[in-house]
Write a protein that binds this DNA or RNA. Structure first.
Length: 864
RNA sequence: GCCGGAAUGGCGGAACCGGUAGACGCAGCGGACUCAAAAUCCGCCGGUCGCAAGACCAUGAGAGUUCGAGUCUCUCUUCCGGCACCA
């Protein structure tokens, strides 16, 4: 009988059981049939370009993607209901190293692997119900996309903003191949285990330093960016004002000058030695004469190329046997080679002032070099060991001859002026930012459009020959770039003289691809240009969302490209900054567990672990589903190696997309790390079921006309807070506001106008987060045809009116009671009521009240 | 090492401006319903003391500013992100 009734209900009424799969299919079909997410340029409406960082097509979506794209979708749907013309596109950051690794492992060309991953991940994105305009889909590995990487590169090349010089790479001597930093494990090649060497090879660079000043200054005009990101970019660009100082010396009886840059020219009189990088010409010269120096220089070259490692290795040095002359005192100073001096920054040489620089101090102690204090610091005039940070502070000059008594600023000015008269120095601005090396000795990337001609040199490929196509049927084997072995690719004619020439086989850094995709989305199919006037309509991106790990490189490169594109395309005039608002989402973390029975760790997926808790809920032990005891290894990023990844697909299959979306929004604020918990997912599922159950009961009830004022106040108060929070992107509290509203209207003894209004508010508030269920219930309850077309709910000021307010009463800042006072009560009346409170009297008795602090609407504090 | 963050009950988190610390949820405990279980519903739920009213302690540690500090300042600890070829 039950079955008959159910079958009947299915036709005429909504079902009592929440079936996410059916609800989501139906909603997605509805949107597809209407092409609901197609965005067209409409000057009549305010535009809102909402963009999440596009994914690398690694195979399957991971939880980080779900989180990222849900954040973007919540904003997209919210601004759409607010009446904006919203664009939310999606594409694929499709070039990169993992495709080559997969190709080697599976003997499948990277192109095939990549396109297949794109298909899988696209289906997953669709199942999550994101309001994406798929008509604008792009993949960076397609020639119609990367053609414009090449086009822009040739423009920059002709202007000198792209140029060739040598750069340092990791070299695997066994595989005869260049390794990415990621492929160097503890100084060894990941496949061969061979010690990795540094190697200098010719590469192409983009002159981002030409924009350093602009990229720095414009950070002040980005109020929509997190301060921490702007600060990181500022420090990365690293503008420092200082003095370039020359130290003369003789080499083969020729006068030479060793140049250094320093921000502490005021300490010049305290310089007791010089230190140069292993690649510095002086070091190279000395190593030719002295085998010990040579051995040391070689050792430095074998050392790490990565700055993080370089900064942590033991500081070592070796005297070159050469001396330079102090430009002001005429003293002879020894020149050392040191492994901590970077060739890439400044002049590749520094002056050693041990008394006032910590690193120089340690170096001088170790190598018994003189330490000469020349600045009066807070602890005095001498610098006894151990090092104290005060030694590096600014102060007046001492032991500095004519500069004695001068301040930092005065001494810097005077010394710079004196050096300038001798042509041995001048004030200079130095940047930490280096030019962007884009050459990669790899196959799966954009070919660099240069032809090497024996007579014409490096010739950029002319526009009519673009794109330089990447052959798509190649399987790399890990030994160098396969393009080198492809005569059909390499052999060509010089575009300039027509004689036989060779193509450049290096490809571009994939950061080039991702530095302008946001512009391509505006006019993705335009064949004759990077973009067209539609970019003028959509750009800049109003809201950009992505991981904090991109805070520096990707975002800085994109800012640089935006400026370069403006100049080269003539489009987007006045749009210097590509991203008006930036949200950096936190990582998704999970617990990890392992068994250690045979001495080797076997990682057990958290989904297969059962934890045992004590009465308070503290984890006391855990075991795998097969009964083996497991060890809890703490919480960390989801990774293959620790087998602690949570597959979003399993989650969607079990609970539906709405639960996956609601959970990721509810459980953490978007910018914080999210610690995965299966139990909490069920809580989110339960809430959606409760919404469903309530709507079901409501749909069959008759509604009174009455209004329950107290409940309505609660609903509108929560709505008011939620509307503030959604703009602040605190979606976790928006989700909890949905729960609170449901709790409030559920508490009503019978359905009335308050429940109906509350439910209507609840569904609209919920719709950006869990759009399928909101869409379905909105229609079932006959609130409208399409919830996306409904107006966003606004709190009714009348509902928020209150006659009385509750005030907290404190004595000496400690909570002692509370009072209810009429809204219009004045200070005196409030104070009187506060003093009348019995518990307050206990604490005031025997003391005199010295001061009364009244914070309207909040509290009264009696100070005794 | 350098640059940038973070730390609040058993857990995720809330507290927007310096003004009731712990909203909302999870887990747990107790109860109702049930032959039983599931589902659902009701209640409790930071610690110590207390019959209770309530008091005291408590936001990683230590200091400071303030009538009042999770929030501001300084020092420290631990963890996370980035460091230029992972994306």
């Amino acid at each position: 009988m039950d079955a008959i009734i159910r079958g009947f209900r299915k036709k005429s009424h909504m079902q009592d059981v929440y079936d996410p799969a059916a609800v989501e299919r139906e909603a997605q079909d509805f949107w597809a049939s209407r092409d609901s997410f197609r965005s067209l340029e409409d000057p009549a409406k305010p535009k809102f370009y909402c963009l999440s960082m596009f994914p690398y097509p690694s195979g399957k979506l991971h939880m980080g993607h779900v989180r990222n794209y849900t954040i973007g979708d919540v904003l997209t749907r919210y601004y759409r209901m607010r009446g904006c013309n919203v664009l939310q596109p999606m594409g694929w950051d499709a070039f990169g190293l993992p495709a080559e690794n997969a190709a080697m492992a599976n003997k499948v060309p990277p192109a095939k692997w990549t396109y297949s991953n794109i298909a899988t991940m696209k289906a997953q994105l669709k199942s999550l119900g994101f309001a994406l305009d798929w008509s604008r889909e792009l993949a960076t590995c397609r020639p119609d996309y990367y053609k414009w990487n090449q086009w822009l590169f040739t423009r920059l090349f002709r202007k000198g903003l792209a140029y060739k010089k040598t750069g340092v790479v990791n070299w695997d001597p066994v595989d005869q191949t260049v390794l990415a930093n990621e492929q160097v494990i503890e100084g060894r090649g990941w496949r061969t285990g061979a010690p990795v060497e540094k190697r200098e090879i010719p590469m192409y660079f983009l002159r981002i330093t030409a924009y350093a000043e602009e990229l720095l200054a414009a950070l002040d005009d980005l109020p929509g960016w997190p301060e921490q990101v702007k600060l990181m970019q500022k420090n990365w660009i690293g503008k420092s004002e200082g003095v370039r100082i020359g130290f003369p010396y003789q080499l083969n009886n020729q006068p030479q000058t060793l140049w250094v840059f320093t921000t502490r020219a005021d300490t010049l009189m305290g310089a007791t030695f010089m230190a140069v990088a292993a690649e510095h010409p002086i070091a190279v010269f000395a190593s030719q004469k002295d085998s010990k120096v040579r051995a040391f220089v070689d050792e430095c070259k074998r050392g790490p190329a990565m700055e993080a490692e370089l900064a942590q290795i033991e500081k070592k040095g070796m005297p070159t046997g050469l001396f330079v002359t102090h430009p002001l005192s005429g003293e002879k100073l020894p020149v050392w080679v040191a492994n901590y001096v970077l060739m890439g920054y400044g002049e590749g040489a520094v002056m050693g002032v041990p008394a006032h620089d910590e690193r120089d101090y340690e170096f001088a102690l170790k190598h018994k070099l003189p330490i000469k204090p020349v600045i009066r610091h807070p602890l005095g005039d001498t610098v006894p060991a151990p090092w104290k940070p005060e030694y590096a502070e600014y102060g007046t000059c001492i032991n500095s001859g004519k500069y004695d008594g001068l301040s930092y600023r005065e001494a810097t000015d005077a010394i710079a002026a004196d050096l300038q008269r001798k042509s041995l120095g001048e004030k200079q601005i130095q940047w930490r930012l280096r030019d962007w090396g884009i050459s990669r000795q790899r196959y799966w990337g954009t070919p660099i459009p240069i032809v090497h001609c024996p007579s014409c040199g490096d010739v950029p490929v002319p526009d009519e020959q673009l794109p330089v196509r990447l052959p798509e049927d190649v399987v790399p084997d890990g030994t160098g770039n396969p393009l080198n072995k492809l005569a059909s690719f390499v052999d060509t004619k010089c575009p300039s003289c027509g004689r036989p020439a060779k193509r450049e086989t290096d490809t571009m850094d994939t950061f080039v691809d991702s530095s302008w995709y946001f512009v391509r989305f505006c006019s993705p199919e335009v064949a004759g240009a990077m973009a067209d006037e539609r970019a003028d309509y959509w750009m800049p991106v109003d809201q950009y969302i992505g991981g904090i790990e991109h805070a520096i490189l990707h975002l800085l490169y994109s800012r640089f490209f935006q400026r370069a594109m403006q100049k080269e395309t003539g489009l987007m005039r006045g749009v210097d900054e590509p991203f008006t608002n930036l949200l950096t989402q936190g990582m998704v973390l999970a617990e990890s567990y392992y068994t250690d029975t045979s001495g080797r760790r076997e990682w057990i997926n958290p989904a297969d672990v059962e934890v045992v808790r004590d009465a308070k809920g503290t984890i006391v032990s855990a075991r795998a589903k097969d009964g083996r005891a497991v060890v809890y290894d703490g919480i960390g990023t989801m990774s293959k190696s620790k087998n602690n990844g949570v597959d979003p697909q399993a989650l969607i299959d079990k609970f539906g997309a709405d639960t996956a979306r609601f959970y990721t929004m509810f459980t953490s604020p978007p910018t914080s790390t999210l610690e995965w918990s299966d139990a909490s997912v069920e809580g989110s599922y339960n809430f959606l079921r409760k919404v469903w159950g309530f709507a079901f009961k409501f749909s069959r009830a008759t509604c009174a006309e009455s209004i329950e004022r107290k409940i309505r106040y609660q609903v509108h108060l929560e709505l008011k807070k939620a509307n503030d929070d959604i703009v602040r992107k605190k979606f976790n509290t928006v989700a909890s506001a949905c729960m609170k509203i449901l709790n409030a209207i559920e508490a009503l003894p019978e359905w009335d106008a308050t429940s109906k209004e509350g439910l209507s508010i609840l569904l609209r508030l919920l719709s950006p987060i869990a759009p399928h269920i909101a869409h379905h219930l909105w229609r079932e309850l006959k609130f409208g045809e399409d919830i996306m077309e409904a107006p966003w709910p606004e709190p009714d000021p009348a509902a928020l009116e209150q006659d009385e307010v509750e005030l907290v009463v404190q004595v000496n800042g400690k909570l002692r009671g509370s009072i209810r006072v009429p809204k219009a009560a004045d200070r005196a009346a409030i104070e009187e009521l506060a003093r009348a409170n019995p518990n307050v009297q206990r604490f005031v008795a025997g003391h005199s009240v010295k001061k009364v602090v009244v914070v309207p609407g909040r509290l009264v504090n009696l100070v005794v």
